[in-house]
C-alpha cells in the first residue's frame, strides 16, 4: 500500500511539473509573439541610407585655442554626466629637455589656467580628443554580449539596453575614450552625435568650435572639404602602432602626443 502511494505521488508530481512547465513555455511563447520587441522597430531609417556615408573626423591642433566650447556643447547635447567626458582637451607642453607636461583640468571644459610665470615652454599646444571610431577597434571585439558595435557608416556605438556593464571595453580602448555611466551603469562613449549626423547636422562639438579646429567628414562624399585635406595634407592618427585604424585624423600633431 505504502509503495503504491509513493508511486502515485511521484506520478502526480511529474504530471504537475510537466503541466507547469508546459504552461510556462506556452505563455512565454505567446508573450514573445505578441509583445512588440521595440517601440522604434522599423521606420526612422527611410530618409537616411548609411551605405552612402562613411564618417571621419579631422582635428587641426594648430587652430585649437583650448576654450572648451566643444566639451561643454557635448555635455549639453548628450546629457553627459558630470565628471565624465565624451570629448576633452589636453594641453601639451614639450620643453627642449625633460618631461612632457600634459594637463586637462575638468577635461578642459572650463578652459585652462594661465601658464605658470616660470614656464618658458615654446612648444605648447592643445589636443582635443574623443573616440577615434577605429575601423579595427578592440572595444567592440571584447564585448561579450554584442552591446558594442560599428555601424555601416563607421560609427562605434554602445547599445545601453544590451550592455551588462562589465567594463571590458573600457580597458580595451587604448585612448581612454570610454567611461562607465554612473546613472545607467553601462559603458558610455562618443556617438559622433549619431542623432545629428544622420539628420544632416554637424556634431555638437564641430558646430561649437569657434575656430574650425574640428571638422566632420564623409569619405563617400567627393565634395567634402575634409576629403580634400586628407588627400593633400599630412595627417596623423593617435597611437598608429596599435593598428586600430583610427578614423579621427590630426593635423599638426607632435610625436610626443599619445
Amino acid at each position: 500500500m505504502n509503495k503504491t502511494n509513493q508511486t502515485s505521488t511521484r506520478r502526480e508530481f511529474l504530471r504537475q511539473s510537466a503541466l507547469t512547465c508546459g504552461t510556462t513555455v506556452a505563455s512565454m511563447a505567446v508573450i514573445a509573439l505578441i509583445l512588440p520587441d521595440d517601440a522604434y522597430a522599423a521606420g526612422t531609417t527611410s530618409e537616411y541610407d548609411w551605405d552612402k556615408h562613411r564618417w571621419v573626423y579631422l582635428i587641426d591642433t594648430r587652430k585649437c585655442i583650448g576654450c572648451g566650447s566643444c566639451a561643454r556643447a557635448c555635455r549639453k547635447e548628450n546629457q553627459v554626466p558630470e565628471g565624465m567626458y565624451r570629448t576633452w582637451i589636453e594641453r601639451i607642453a614639450i620643453p627642449p629637455e625633460g618631461e612632457v607636461h600634459v594637463d586637462s583640468p575638468y577635461g578642459g571644459e572650463h578652459g585652462f589656467e594661465p601658464d605658470p610665470p616660470n614656464a618658458h615652454v615654446r612648444k605648447s599646444f592643445f589636443v582635443p580628443k574623443l573616440c577615434n571610431h577605429c575601423s579595427n577597434t578592440p572595444c567592440t571585439q571584447v564585448c561579450p554580449v554584442g552591446a558594442s558595435f560599428e555601424t555601416n557608416d563607421g560609427v562605434v556605438l554602445v547599445d545601453p539596453k544590451q550592455c551588462i556593464g562589465c567594463g571590458y571595453c573600457l580597458q580595451a580602448c587604448p585612448y581612454g575614450s570610454r567611461f562607465m555611466n554612473p546613472h545607467t551603469r553601462t559603458a558610455d562613449k562618443c556617438t559622433l552625435c549619431y542623432h545629428r549626423i544622420t539628420k544632416g547636422l554637424p556634431t555638437a562639438c564641430v558646430q561649437a568650435c569657434p575656430v574650425g579646429a574640428r571638422q566632420l567628414g564623409d569619405r563617400k562624399n567627393p565634395n567634402d572639404p575634409v576629403n580634400e585635406i586628407l588627400a593633400t595634407q599630412r595627417v596623423q592618427v593617435l597611437q598608429q602602432q596599435l593598428l586600430t585604424k583610427p578614423q579621427c585624423f590630426y593635423l599638426g600633431l607632435d610625436m610626443e602626443v599619445r
Binding site: 520587441d37 522604434y40 548609411w50 554584442g146 547599445d159 544590451q162 542623432h195
Partner: peptide, 16 residues
C-alpha cells in the same frame, strides 16, 4: 548586435 539600437540612437533629441 541588436539592430534596433541604431534607430534608437538616431531618435535622440537634437539639443543644439
Amino acid at each position: 548586435y541588436r539592430g534596433d539600437a541604431v534607430p534608437e540612437h538616431r531618435a535622440k533629441p537634437v539639443v543644439h
